[in-house]
Amino acid sequence: MPKWGMVIDLDKCTGCQACVVACKTENNIPFSTPEQAEMGRTISWIEIIPIMEGEYPRPKLRYLPRPCLQCDHPPCIKVCPVYATYRNPEGLVGQVYSRCIGCRYCTAACPYTAKYFNWSAPTWAKEFEPCLNPDVSKRPKGVVEKCTFCHHRLQKAKEKVKAEGRELKDEDYVPACVQTCPAGAMYFGDLDNPNSKVTQQTKSPRAFRLLEELGTEPKVIYLTEGEWHGAYRK
């Protein structure tokens, strides 16, 4: 069974937010209002975290795109009292909205702040309604949601390859953010396949995992030049 993983090359990322927009459109994530944003209630399954360094006249700005890291040992699933979040056989951390009771334990437990609580029922402008993705639900008020690595795309890919009578390949299943990235900074594939591009990338001396010392074993691996590694670990 494949183990899906993502590699993000931080040296290529320009912080353009195309992945954020693609994700929001693909996964029916409602627009935030300035009031909600001020209260920290904006939902963004993938977030570009800016890291500022240095001072004028030589400031440095780096960007860290952060989806759900789909940990192999996810702290969020250990605290869920109702099995609404769990690790599935392919290593993806699932979120079942109809089971979620909104206790937000998982939101607090996630060291990467990748989980979001729906403080209000989602609304869209009437003109936007036809653009919603029918393969993804509109999450109701009071449940926690997060990036699923566009799991619905995996379902479709599996159906397609079965109809064509062949095995699933890496290029059959790509999340919306990876597909959109104009800088080509994101890679996606099977981490269990030694020949896949993502597995090759993880062997790079530039590769590191976010907050590795926590033992969460995330399946999103970042690439950056050596001198920057330490900064991301803070």
């Binding site: 769990y86 599935n88 056989p89 993806l92 699932g94 979120q95 079942v96 909205y97 109809s98 089971r99 393969d135 993804v136 639900s137 699923t148 799991h151 619905h152 379902q155």
Partner: peptide
């Protein structure tokens, strides 16, 4: 029988 196979 994975939850997310049917629950979206």
């Amino acid at each position: 029988v994975d939850c997310v196979a049917c629950h979206k």
